[in-house]
Simulated scan of single mutants.
Amino acid sequence: MGRYTGLFAFGLLLAASVVYSLLPADGPAERSTPIASSTETAPPRSPEQRQPAKGTDTPEAPQGSGFDFYVLALSWSPTFCDGEAAGRNREQCGAGKDFGWVVHGLWPQNETGWPENCPTPEGSRVPERIGRTVIDIMPSMGLIGHQWRKHGSCSGLGMTDYFKLVRQAHDTIRLPTELSNVDIESRTSPQAVEAAFIRSNPGLTRSAVAVTCDRERVDEVRICLDRSLGFRACPEVDSRSCRRSEITIPPTR
Rank of each mutant, 00 (worst) to 15 (best):
G2R: 14
G2K: 10
T5I: 10
F8K: 14
A9I: 00
G11Q: 07
L12N: 06
A15Y: 00
V18I: 12
P24Q: 04
P24D: 13
P24R: 00
P28Y: 15
I35Q: 11
S37P: 13
T39N: 15
A42L: 14
E48S: 11
R50C: 08
T56V: 10
Q63D: 10
G64E: 07
S65Y: 09
Y70E: 03
V71A: 09
S77P: 01
F80H: 07
E84Y: 14
G87D: 09
N89A: 11
N89I: 05
Q92G: 06
W101G: 09
V103Y: 00
H104M: 01
L106I: 03
P108S: 02
E111D: 02
G113Q: 03
W114L: 12
P121K: 08
G123R: 04
G123I: 12
R125A: 15
I130N: 02
I130E: 09
G131M: 10
V134N: 01
V134S: 00
M138L: 05
I144V: 04
G145P: 07
Q147Y: 08
S153R: 08
F163W: 02
D171V: 05
D171H: 04
N181D: 06
V182T: 01
V182C: 03
D183P: 04
E185Y: 03
T188I: 06
P190D: 05
E194S: 15
E194T: 12
A195R: 02
A208K: 00
A210E: 02
A210Y: 04
V221S: 11
I223A: 09
S228A: 11
G230Q: 10
P235C: 03
P235E: 11
D238R: 13
S239E: 11
S241W: 06
I249W: 00
I249D: 02
P251D: 01
